[in-house]
């Protein structure tokens, strides 16, 4: 049985690197990433799982890191936006003007990236379902839809 009864040093695998961090068992993954590892790409927007700005990938699936204990992430592969290097979706976002203020962008990128990896050819309903997990307040979403469709259709690599 894994037990973490007090503030302890643990190992986290983030963006394919091992990190040692000192955490409380009650610490939230979002803040461990931001404050201890300096990975500020995941953004707090609601602290309640409603906006998706803090989305990271855990073993390839999107997770709202504001609703995950850091302790839960031990032994898992975490990917943050800093771990995306020239992913097609990043290029597509720029080409399609899929962001304005940019605050929601990393969360959207992570959802799109995971979607493209898991469902290379999804029907529209699946695209809608995945991307409805996030909120963008600047764009009309149409631009974000165009960006993910460019990636899925292979016209943005």
């Amino acid at each position: 049985m894994f037990a973490l009864s007090k503030r302890s040093l643990i190992k986290l695998n983030v963006n394919q690197e091992e990190y040692e961090v000192f955490i409380r068992p009650s610490d939230i993954l979002l803040f461990t990433l931001r404050e201890q590892l300096g990975l500020t790409g995941a953004k707090p927007g609601c602290y309640n799982g409603d906006c998706g700005a803090c989305t990271v990938l855990v073993d390839g699936l999107p997770v709202k890191s504001c609703l995950m204990l850091t302790a839960e992430a031990i032994g898992k592969q975490i990917t943050t936006v800093e771990g995306l290097k020239d992913a097609p979706i990043q290029k597509a976002f720029i080409e399609q003007f899929a962001f304005q203020c940019g605050y929601c962008t990393s969360g959207f990128l992570m959802v799109c990236h995971a979607l493209a990896n898991r469902h290379p050819n999804p029907p529209d309903i699946v695209i809608d379902e995945w991307l409805q997990s996030n909120i963008c307040r600047c764009t009309s979403y149409e631009e974000i839809g165009n960006a993910i469709r460019k990636v899925l259709s292979g016209t943005c690599k």
């Binding site: 049985m1 037990a3 009650s26 610490d27």
Partner: peptide, 20 residues
């Protein structure tokens, strides 16, 4: 941020879970 401390256990069996 959760404003209080707690312990975290991740048992591997049902027995461990109910025991702890």
């Amino acid at each position: 941020m959760i404003p209080f401390d707690f312990e975290y256990y991740r048992p591997d069996t049902m027995q461990e879970a109910t025991d702890i």
